Amino acid sequence: MKKLAALLATFILVATSAFADTTVKVDGSTTVLPIMQKMVEAYMKANPTVKFTVSGGGSGNGIKAIIDKTTDIAMASRKMKDKEFALAKEKGVNAKEIVVAIDAIVPVVNPANKISAVTLAQLKDLYAGKTTEWKALGGEGPVVVISRDTSSGTYETWEELVMKGEKVFPGALLQASSGAVVQAVSKNKNAIGYVGVGYLDASTKGLTVDGVVGNEENASSGKYPISRDLYLYVNGEPTGEIKKFVDWALGAEGQKLVKEAGFVPLKKK
């Protein structure tokens, strides 16, 4: 019996090895994370021999991982910088950029806040620490500024499009994820934060910017002033299971899930 059990165990091991699953590692942006979670769930259901591990540590971490060859796909809510492309090349990595969706970064306040609209100039003053009381915008109470941390692609896009290169002031409360920003704003009636459009829910109130709503139509057209592309980065031209997944993600099924996640699908060519 022991011999039979041993032979059976050996057979199971060999059989498992013969039909071993392919595992694809994905790391990076917490903004892209809800899209990726929906995609991999649907893709694995249709392709049971392919497994994914997905973690959202921020765009900077994802880009570092693709450069260091510790991930197969990096999620990013910003473009890789020239110095990052150069470092990748030094390490033998040919970082290929793939736009997977479109986003609008929406400033959010607590639903108890009277404010419903801001201008880019007002947002800059709030995040520079120059406007410290809501009464300057028609509200009440002191302003509590919530921001993403500096490893975040959303932070860098905010710095570029809203702050115009000026730094977010040191008094801002930094959060490690978009979900944490939503939670912090929902619990503080004086708070303001910013998140990708897919993170909007009833626990916060989205503000219009320069009179424009951050929605699918305005983000897709570029009318909304804080719009951006969302990216995947891979090492070289995708092949094998990574190519199959990327092609699927950019196709009708994948882009349908972009919309289901609350973000903006790519325009049909």
Rank of each mutant, 00 (worst) to 15 (best):
I35P: 02
I35S: 00
I35L: 03
M36N: 09
M36T: 12
M36E: 11
M36K: 12
M36D: 11
Q37D: 14
Q37T: 08
Q37F: 04
Q37P: 10
K38P: 14
K38G: 14
M39K: 04
M39D: 02
M39E: 14
V40W: 08
E41Q: 12
E41H: 08
E41T: 01
A42P: 00
A42W: 02
Y43C: 13
Y43A: 11
Y43F: 07
M44D: 05
M44P: 07
M44Q: 15
M44T: 11
M44I: 09
M44W: 12
M44E: 13
M44K: 03
K45V: 10
K45N: 06
A46I: 09
A46D: 12
N47F: 05
N47S: 04
N47W: 08
N47T: 14
N47E: 01
N47I: 06
P48Q: 00
P48Y: 00
P48A: 01
P48D: 03
P48G: 00
T49K: 14
T49R: 15
T49D: 12
V50H: 02
V50R: 11
V50L: 15
V50M: 11
K51W: 09
K51I: 01
K51N: 10
K51R: 12
F52C: 04
F52D: 02
F52W: 03
F52R: 00
T53N: 09
T53Q: 04
T53E: 15
T53F: 05
T53W: 10
V54T: 00
S55L: 01
S55Q: 05
G56R: 05
G56W: 08
G56K: 03
G57W: 06
G57M: 10
G57H: 13
G57K: 09
G58N: 13
G58L: 13
G58T: 10
S59T: 13
S59F: 06
S59P: 15
S59R: 02
S59W: 11
S59C: 04
S59H: 02
S59M: 05
G60L: 07
G60V: 15
G62M: 05
G62R: 14
G62P: 12
I63L: 06
K64H: 05
K64F: 04
K64Q: 05
A65F: 01
A65N: 12
A65I: 15
A65V: 03
A65K: 14
I66N: 03
I66F: 04
I67N: 05
I67C: 01
I67R: 09
I67M: 12
D68F: 02
D68N: 02
